[in-house]
Each structure stands twice: as C-alpha cells, then as structure tokens.
Design a protein around this nucleic acid. Structure first.
Lengths: 212, 212
DNA sequence: AGCTGGTGTTCCGACTAGGAACATAAGGGA
DNA sequence: TCCCTTATGTTCCTAGTCGGAACACCAGCT
C-alpha cells in the first residue's frame, strides 16, 4: 500500500523545491464524494478562489450535498491541485492577492471516469425532526407538535431559497441538469411539507376512524 | 472552559482507581446528535451490548439517521456511561462475557431536556444521485438514465425493508411514534420514486411542449 | 481613529467513518 | 477430528469531516 498522502505538509516550504514524488500523481482509489462535488462545481468552467467556491457551494450545492466547511474547501483544493486535477495561479489583479483554481483536463477526465464507473451510493440522511418524533413518548405531545411546526416553517424557507436558485437558472439548455436537480429539490420540499402536515394532523386527532 | 474529555483513556485502567474528577459529570453542552440517537434507542427500555445496539440501529434507525459505525457505538457507550447517562454491568450469563448498558434516570432526564430545549436543525443530506444528475453535462445521457434507474431500484429495495419494520411495529399505542416515523419514511420513498421517474421521462423526451 | 463587515486563508481540536485486528463460540462438512 | 464459515463482542488506527478561532487586509461609516 503506497502512501496516498496527507493533505497538509507543514514541514516543507510550498514554493519551488520540487521535492515530492507525489506531484501530479493519479488518485489510485476514488476520492471522497465531497471532492468530486467540488470538482463538479468547477467543471462548469469558472476560475475561483476558495472563498468564492465556498460561497457558491453554500448557495446551491447545499440543497443536496452537505456544504463543506471553509477549512475543508481549502484542503480539498490543495489536494486536487497536488493530484493534477486542478490548475492554480496567484492572482494579484484584484485588491486582494488570492489563489485561483480551475479544473484541468485531467480533472475533467477523472470526473467523467468517476461518473461512468463508480456504483452509486444510497443517500445518507440525518433527519433531526424524524429522530425527535421517534422519541415522542418522552415528552408532552405539544412539544412534538411545536417541533414539527418549526420544521415546516424551515421547509418553507428553504423552498423559497431553492426557488430563487431555480429561477436563476432559466430555461437555457446549458443549465438543463442543474435545473432538473433544483426541480427535484422543490418537489421534495413540497412532498415533505405535505407529509409532515398530515402527521401533525394525526397527532392532533389521535384515532380518526377510517371512513372507508 | 473545562475539559469535556476525550472519549477513550488508554492510559488508565478502567476498574477501580476513582482517579478522575469527571466521573458522573453533567454534560454542560449538548452532546452530538448521534449520542442522543443512541440514548433514544435505549430509552425504549432494553439492556443491550454494543453489538446488539449496533444491530438495532442498522435495522431501524438508519432510515432517518446515519447508522453510526461499530467503533462509534462503543465509544459513545463509554462516554455516556462516564457521564452517568447510562448504567452498565458485566454480563457473564450468556455464552460470551459482555458489557450491557441501559439508560439511567439521569439519561432519561437529559434526553427530555434535549428534546424540549434544543432548537431543531434542518436535515443534512448527501444525495449522490442528485450530485450525479447535476453533472449530467459531462457524460452521455444514457449514463445518467442508467444511474437514475439504479437509484430507483435501490429505493424500491429500501422501501420493502422499511415496510417490514413498520409491519413489525403493529398498531399498538406503545410504538405509536416509531410507527409514525416509519410511515413518514414510506411516504418519502414513494414520493421520491415518483419524482425520479418523472425526471427520467423528461430526460428521454427532451422538450414535450406543455399542452396546457 | 476606531468599528464593523466582507474577503481570503490557515490551524487546531473534536467528531465521524470504515476497516483491520483480535478473541471466542457454534454449526456444518470433508 | 479438523477446518471453515458465520456470528458475537470489542478495540484500535487512519483518514475524513466539522466548526470555530485566529490572522490579515481592505472598505466604508462615524
């Protein structure tokens, strides 16, 4: 087993000193999915700083993928660059010096390979509202009802944000797939909101005899 | 800020030696949600080994909460025990010696406090199928269609498993809340399956002019 | 001059994921 | 009988992830 490398190398100076043998090394195994998520954002073309990439992920990606932390965005960029999947340069044209990254040909190829070859994982979910409903026997019913009411309010808020994202994509074929994903999310929020309202109704009217 | 403690203490022998001052210490801050998830399972009453708790979590909890890894189950049990939220004993009655844990009064109280006082977080989602659909521009359309077909098949499978869980809960009022949560999950799988089928249809018939 | 807020990045500690490793028992087949 | 597989029960290690603190600099406002 060869060393696939730690992300940070605090001992070595970053400039010059082509010391490592792991420069431009192919990622023998799959990277974690979050790496492909960020690489995927960059596959749409822009040349971004870590800060800008984080903002973009926060505004769109987070609806179906956990928005990675700032620190993780930067360490991912460092790693992807080291693997040759990105190209980077120092940008001093703006008011602030910054490092800008864009996807490389290698990166595009690796992304295509991953999309074609890798079996799909089932979604991973952490659903606090469901967990709390499960534990309803421990608290007064009003606590649970109130909790679900708050969840519905959050759903409405998120739905409105996602609607804005979807509207911003227009009907241009360029953003056909992002638009499909946004639509998917909107359907999800609508269905979820309806389902939770039904649950709240059932909690209020304990046993409505089925009139069928 | 006082030390809220590492989970493992490899230096110290576990028996006797009341060395620490952090025994039976209240958790000043909230524990991570996964801790409350496991504590919540134990709030239904049983006295379990780490192994059994992991199996239970795998069979039911995983539908709306990431099933924690074996190693995490054990470290959580150790921590919750150290905090006085669990009671534990060595069990040698079975064929294999094992440590059994059940929830304490303190644990029940802390769980109730958390349910009542803590604001609810929005669900966290990692949705590989959505991420791949987003990147549809990179691959042939058939790759994306096939990917979504595989996802639908996984959905059907999961739905069948959850249906069994739900059937096992019956209509007894004891499991009213677990049954509601299971029903919630079933609705989610049904809605998601329908939505994804619609997406696949749209991918096949690119622009069906709206006949309205 | 100082305050606040946005840009840009790094570092650290805690939490989480996943598998390897270890140990023992039960059951089945050559 | 011996081996193999499966299940029980637990620990350890590595890498990945999260969240905040810290640092730095610039712009606009008071």
């Amino acid at each position: 087993m060869t060393d696939t490398g730690g992300v940070a190398d605090p001992a070595g100076p970053p400039e010059d000193s082509l010391s490592g043998s792991d420069l431009r090394q192919a990622p023998e195994h799959d990277l974690p999915p979050t790496s492909y998520a960020l690489l995927g954002l960059l596959s749409f073309g822009p040349e971004l700083t870590g800060y800008e990439l984080k903002q973009w992920a926060d505004s769109t990606l987070r609806f179906y993928w956990v928005a990675p932390a700032m620190s993780q965005v930067y360490s991912e960029l460092t790693r992807l660059d080291r693997l040759g999947l990105l190209e980077s340069r120092d940008d001093r044209t703006g008011q602030r010096p910054a490092r800008r990254y864009k996807i490389s040909e290698r990166g595009m190829a690796e992304l295509r390979r991953w999309l074609s070859d890798t079996p799909i994982d089932f979604p991973v979910l952490k659903h606090p509202a469901a967990l709390r409903l499960l534990l309803g026997h421990l608290v007064d019913i009003d606590v649970t009802r109130k909790m679900l009411g708050g969840y519905i309010a959050q759903l409405d808020e998120r739905r409105a944000e996602l609607q804005e994202v979807r509207d911003g994509l227009g009907s241009d074929a360029t953003f056909r797939f992002p638009a499909e994903v946004a639509q998917w999310g909107l359907s999800y929020y609508d269905d979820e909101s309806r389902t939770v309202r039904e649950i709240v109704d059932r909690l209020s009217n304990p046993e409505p005899p089925d009139p069928a």
